[in-house]
Design a protein around this nucleic acid. Structure first.
Lengths: 102, 102
DNA sequence: GACAGACTACGGCATTGCCGTATCTTTCTT
DNA sequence: AAGAAAGATACGGCAATGCCGTAGTCTGTC
C-alpha cells in the first residue's frame, strides 16, 4: 500500500521531467529508486547476509555496507536489487545455473 | 553458438567449486560473467551510448568507460547488463514506467 | 558459562562512477 | 566538396563505492 504510493510519487518525478521538456516522452526509461531497503528484500527471501550475497553475486562487504547505511548501492545495484525483489524468476533465468540456453 | 560454448565453460567453473567442496551444491547461485560486451548488447538494441544510458539508468560516462575498456563494470552492473540482454521484458516490468503494481 | 552464528561498526586501500573536454569519424545537408 | 551535427574515442581527476579484515554485540543452544 504505502509502497505503491511511493512508487507513484517517484513516477511523478519522471512525468515532471517530460512536462518540463527535460526528457523526451518517447524515450522509455526505467525508474530506479534512490533508496532501496536491502534488508527488507533479503528478509523476504529469508536469507542471511552471506547467503544473500552468494546467492546473487554481491560481495558480503557491500551488502553489509548497504544495510548499515554506510554506503549507498550504485544505480546499477539498486536496479538489480529492485529486479530481484520484483522479478526474481527472471533473474534466475537470465543469470541462473548453466542452462542449455533458451 | 560460440556464446553458448562460453557459457558452458564458465558454468564448469561453478561445478568445479562444488566438486572441490568450496561451494554448497544446494546453494543456488547466479553466474555473473567476468566480461560483458556492452557494445554488442547496445548494438543489438540499436541504441546510441547516450540512449542506452538513459534508457536503462546508467550514466553516460560509465557506458563510455565500459565500451572503451577503460573500466570494468561492477559485478552488479554486469549482472544487470546480462539481464538486459537476456530478459529485457523483465527489466521493463520490474523497473519500467509507473505501473499499478502487479 | 562457553560457543557458534548473524549482525553491527569501523579502518583503509583499490577501483569504479561520473563529469568535463578535446579529438576523430561518420553521416547528413546544402 | 565543404560544413554542420551526431556519435565515439581518449584522457584527466576527484568523489564515492567496492571490498577485505577485524573487533564488538546479541541471541540461541549445549
Amino acid at each position: 500500500m504505502a509502497e505503491n504510493f511511493n512508487r507513484i510519487m517517484e513516477g511523478l518525478g519522471d512525468v515532471l521531467e517530460i512536462v518540463e521538456g527535460r526528457a523526451a516522452p518517447e524515450s522509455y526509461r526505467v525508474h530506479i529508486p534512490e533508496k532501496v531497503d536491502v534488508k527488507a528484500i533479503r528478509d523476504r527471501l529469508k536469507l542471511t547476509q552471506a547467503g544473500f550475497a552468494e546467492r546473487f553475486g554481491f560481495s558480503i562487504g557491500a551488502v553489509r555496507d548497504w544495510e548499515q547505511d554506510r554506503r549507498t548501492p550504485e544505480k546499477s545495484a539498486r536496479a538489480l536489487l529492485t529486479i530481484i525483489d520484483r522479478e526474481p524468476a527472471a533473474v534466475e533465468r537470465a543469470l541462473g545455473p548453466i542452462t542449455a540456453d533458451t
